[in-house]
Amino acid sequence: MTHYQNRIERRFAELKAANRTGLVTFISAGDPDYDVSLEALLALPEAGADVIELGMPFTDPMADGPSIQKASLRALNAGQDMQRTLAMVRALRERENEIPLVLMGYYNPIYRMGVENFLSQASDAGVDGLIVVDLPPEHDDELCLPAREHNIHFIRLAAPTTDAKRLPLVLQNTSGFLYYVSSTGVTGMAAPTPERVEAEVNAIREHTDIPIGVGFGIRTPEQAKRIARFADAVVVGSALIECIEKAATPDEGTQAVVDLTRSLAEAVDKARKYQ
Rank of each mutant, 00 (worst) to 15 (best):
L73Q: 10
D81K: 00
A71W: 01
A78R: 11
P136A: 06
A43V: 03
F216D: 08
I241Y: 00
D232F: 05
V234E: 02
M113C: 10
M1A: 15
R74W: 04
P168Y: 06
V102P: 08
T261E: 13
E252F: 08
A17P: 01
K273A: 13
L169I: 13
S182H: 12
M189G: 06
G185K: 02
L171V: 09
M82S: 08
T59F: 07
S263T: 15
P221C: 11
P61R: 01
A122S: 04
E245L: 06
P45N: 06
Q83P: 05
F230A: 01
Q69C: 03
R205N: 05
A248D: 11
L167S: 08
S182A: 05
D124A: 15
M113A: 14
M1N: 15
I204P: 02
K273C: 06
S123E: 05
F118G: 05
G217E: 00
G237M: 13
M113F: 06
K225F: 05
H153F: 08
A247Y: 02
T161S: 10
I218F: 05
E94A: 09
I99F: 03
S182F: 07
G176R: 12
I8A: 08
V186E: 04
L260G: 06
S120P: 08
R74A: 05
E200N: 14
S28H: 14
A147H: 10
R20T: 10
E138S: 07
L169F: 15
L135A: 09
L44R: 00
Q5K: 13
S120M: 14
I218K: 00
A224T: 07
F26E: 03
E206N: 15
R196K: 08
D33M: 02
F12L: 06
N151K: 11
D251E: 07
E245M: 11
P100L: 11
R93H: 00
P32S: 14
E200L: 13
M82N: 04
F177G: 02
P57T: 05
S67F: 11
G253L: 01
D140G: 07
T220E: 03
P109H: 11
L135H: 11
D81S: 04
V51P: 03
E242C: 07
